[in-house]
């Protein structure tokens, strides 16, 4: 089943390039405004420079119920520092001055609902964002949202979960464009030591229902995780691991360096994992 909405944003182009080159992409998440929007600007450029294929900018929210402690703390820091949705859109505009890296806004529903979906979609598109992912919005409740976001030629990325049944996977795929975000495990965001044993099976099941690129997230932090995904997924999403580098770093420059290192190592692991898997097929 193909997506009912065909888009040609920077996101689909990047995934097409990845598929042509046979590489596993890295989707890098940071919470916008942690510790400041200026710092996030530098982080995004550093991540893109180090090879991140897509950047997810987390819009901080007071009640991030799908997030674990790392991103909860980042959201609190960002809100204390004064970040707002309007500020995050301004950040997108600044990134676009110098970079063409695909940008996804990763948000809870209420902040964009309060801005007004029409205004949010228009401003996000004008700023140069490529897609939107709303953590607490599923296909059932998303009709207005999809119409309004698609009207601005932005991608709508929906989550698929290990608990999603086949019918839902079909519907999630039909509502998504750009890529589909597969949650690796039941739970909240946060780095974990290992990936669930049944992840390859889950990926194969999801693959059956979508032609969209699949990015796998939740709990991915180590090169070993990424190499497991090579040949099965199109990209790995790394979030909490990056956010905790920012949390630990003594300065913005130190954080940029740590983010670069992380992404480079993961990107290399992605390529190695893929070539290894292809050799055994």
């Amino acid at each position: 089943m193909t997506s009912s909405f065909q888009n040609s944003t920077r996101i689909s182009k990047r995934f097409a390039e990845l598929r042509a080159a046979g590489g596993l992409g890295i989707v890098a998440y940071v919470t916008a405004g942690d510790p400041s929007l200026d710092a996030t600007h530098k982080f995004v450029l550093a991540l893109a420079d180090a090879g991140a294929d897509v950047i997810e900018l987390g819009v901080p929210f007071s009640d991030p119920l799908a997030d674990g402690p790392t991103i909860q703390r980042a959201s609190e820091r960002a809100l204390k520092a004064g970040a707002s949705l309007a500020g995050v859109l301004e950040l997108v505009r600044r990134v676009r001055d110098t970079s063409q890296v695909p940008l996804v806004l990763f948000t809870y529903f209420n902040p964009i609902l309060q801005m007004g979906l029409e205004k949010f979609a228009a401003d996000a598109a004008q700023a140069g964002a490529d897609g939107v992912l709303v953590t607490d919005l599923t296909p059932e409740e998303s009709e207005d949202y999809r119409r309004i976001i698609h009207a601005q030629n932005l991608d709508t990325i929906f989550l698929a979960a290990p608990t999603s049944d086949d019918g839902r996977l079909l519907r999630i795929s039909a509502c998504s464009s750009g890529f589909l975000y597969l949650i690796s495990r039941t739970g909240v965001t946060g780095a974990k030591d290992s990936l669930p044993d049944d992840l390859p099976g889950l990926l194969r099941r999801v693959r059956h229902f979508t032609e969209l690129p699949i990015a796998v997230g939740f709990g991915i932090s180590l090169p070993g995780h990424v190499s497991v995904l090579g040949g099965l997924a199109d990209a790995a999403v790394v979030g909490s691991a990056l956010v905790s580098e920012i949390e630990k770093a003594s300065s913005v420059e130190a954080a940029c360096a740590a983010l670069r290192d992380r992404v480079k190592v993961l990107k290399e692991a992605g390529c190695r994992g893929l070539s290894r898997r292809e050799a055994t097929i």
Binding site: A66, F109, D136, T138, A161, T163, I172
Partner: peptide
């Protein structure tokens, strides 16, 4: 019903 996908089923 505004929840993460994991809770829908």
């Amino acid at each position: 019903r505004y929840v993460p996908e994991t809770l829908m089923v």
